[in-house]
């Protein structure tokens, strides 16, 4: 083959190679930008999902609590929905309450959380801490209105159950 022709061929292939490299570079930059954007968006979305899942978990815990025989109102063995017996709540609250005394057992059910009961009617009472097992400083709070049943007076008061679930 003639060397001048060989020279021309080499230049042309070099140019083609250069073009391919440039296209690949641009493509890689675009892919990199897309990936960075995707990571940013998915991180924000993941954090939102995590918070929502924690909130849903808190609601599940609230429902578990209101159905615990240790707290729930019952008549002839039938548990009333969304109802807490005020005498059972008094017995379970505070450092001498059975939730604190049997903390290891209840930690399996309630995990790291704080559960507080507020009486809102007929007058606002002082809050009763039913269960407390703290871990870290990040927590998610959910409220659930409940009936506070007084079996002696046969009255139903308006109460609020607060659960703070510790996340990390």
């Amino acid at each position: 083959m003639r060397p001048d022709l060989l020279g021309i061929d080499m230049k042309k292939s070099q140019m083609q190679l250069g073009e391919t490299m440039a296209i690949l570079l641009v493509f890689m930059v675009l892919v990199g930008l897309g990936f960075a954007f995707y990571m940013r968006v998915s991180k924000a979305s993941f954090e939102k999902d995590l918070k929502a899942q924690e909130a849903e978990l808190s609601i599940q815990k609230l429902q578990t609590i209101t159905h615990l025989p240790e707290l729930a109102c019952s008549s002839e063995g039938v548990i009333t929905d969304n109802c807490i017996d005020v005498y059972k709540a008094s017995a379970s609250a505070g450092p001498e309450g059975f939730f604190t005394k049997n903390r290891i057992y209840y930690q399996k059910i309630l995990g790291y959380s704080s559960i507080t009961l507020y009486q809102m009617s007929p007058s606002e009472g002082s809050p009763q801490v039913l269960y407390e097992s703290k871990k870290g400083s990040n927590y998610n709070v959910v409220f659930l209105p409940v009936i506070l049943h007084d079996p002696v007076e046969n009255s139903d008061y308006y109460g609020l159950l607060e659960i703070a679930t510790y996340t990390k």
Partner: peptide, 16 residues
């Protein structure tokens, strides 16, 4: 969930 619980609890509350 909050709205439905408020509603059901409120109407059952005893007027002492």
């Amino acid at each position: 969930k909050l709205a439905s619980s408020v509603m059901s609890t409120l109407l059952k509350t005893t007027a002492v």
